[in-house]
Design a protein around this nucleic acid. Sequence first.
DNA 1: GATCTAGGTCTACGTTGTAGACTACGCCGT
DNA 2: ACGGCGTAGTCTACAACGTAGACCTAGATC
Lengths: 204, 204
Amino acid sequence: MLRATVELADRGGIEVLSMRRLGQELGVDAMALYRHVRSKDDLLDGLIETLVAEILPSHADADWKAALRGQAMAARQVMLRHPWMRRVLEERGTTGPAILGRIELALATLGDGGFSLDLAHHALHVLGSRIFGFNQDLFEDSGPEDPSPEVAAAAARALAGYPRITELAQAASHEGVLGRCDDDVEFAFGLDLVLDGLERFRTR
Amino acid sequence: MLRATVELADRGGIEVLSMRRLGQELGVDAMALYRHVRSKDDLLDGLIETLVAEILPSHADADWKAALRGQAMAARQVMLRHPWMRRVLEERGTTGPAILGRIELALATLGDGGFSLDLAHHALHVLGSRIFGFNQDLFEDSGPEDPSPEVAAAAARALAGYPRITELAQAASHEGVLGRCDDDVEFAFGLDLVLDGLERFRTR
DNA sequence: GATCTAGGTCTACGTTGTAGACTACGCCGT
DNA sequence: ACGGCGTAGTCTACAACGTAGACCTAGATC
């Protein structure tokens, strides 16, 4: 059932995930689902648990920086596979055991890496913000194909009066032809910025 | 009407903001609202516009770092006043003129500060992630009063098996008695981390 | 064979956004 | 003064939502 739910949400987005449709997907009445799940919120919590479990832990022998970097990248991979995950996470909060486990692990990594509890606390928040903050929404590319002329014209009209944004959009679209407007580079840039900053704090 | 909508959402959260209830608030039938608004999404877009306009621009004579810091702090103030704003922003995207204006301004600030277009692009994403990433949700304090014994017991039970989180929660609640678990310090910490990192990139 | 239970179905309630028809009031040019 | 018209509001209705509650059904257990 959780698997089918994830698959449905991946196909149609979170907004088509209703109990009725999910039941239909499983060839079953909507109310039958409530034999396995207390409520829809309960189902969403289950979703989060399974998705967080998809985040592979990084190798234990790495130092704190590599370990955290690996965790962040892995988390990002999962959120790319399931773009609706962030919204569900935000709506449902962060109190499940899977998430608490990851937080505990991150705190342990930081503690073993020589961070004070206070600094680890700050680091946790900054890294969480990095992972869950939304980046890729602005000017999402809507696929690899060239936009139709009228769409491009509408975009250009919308950006009239914003010269710097226009410039940036053009540059990005040029890169896009080459390397698909690589968001991973973007993500890693900010992540390393944060990690380097934390390291400098640590050795102070 | 926008004012009443903001006030209703501030009072009851975004989930009680329905067209019927808003109409009731204004002493008017729900459908009357559609004379002023194309749809509820349109209304939400209007909300974003007014709230973004609440973000006061920082003084123009400051250098890039102070200017961006001020903008980020001002944005945070608004999001603290209207906690439901982030969710609406995420659901509705970032294509309104108010937001585009802020982005344009930030890009101009960065450009005048000597950043390349590429670096400014990265900086924009990192700062956006900082501002919109959620931090304060984890262990939200539920007010200044001490929690009732059974709530505290439930929290302690939920955190059994997570020693580092427990330690952190206790430390945070101690600070909480003193200074209310100051989230502003948290926010500023990450913000300065990012700004300092950007500065180092710039002078490279 | 009687009973219990896990799973599924059907109906119904209250809520949501909103389309569409209808109504009442103020401003317009003639 | 008067017919027409736009503007604002009401009422009804529809499809979709989460889910409570009653009912059914087949297999396991005593």
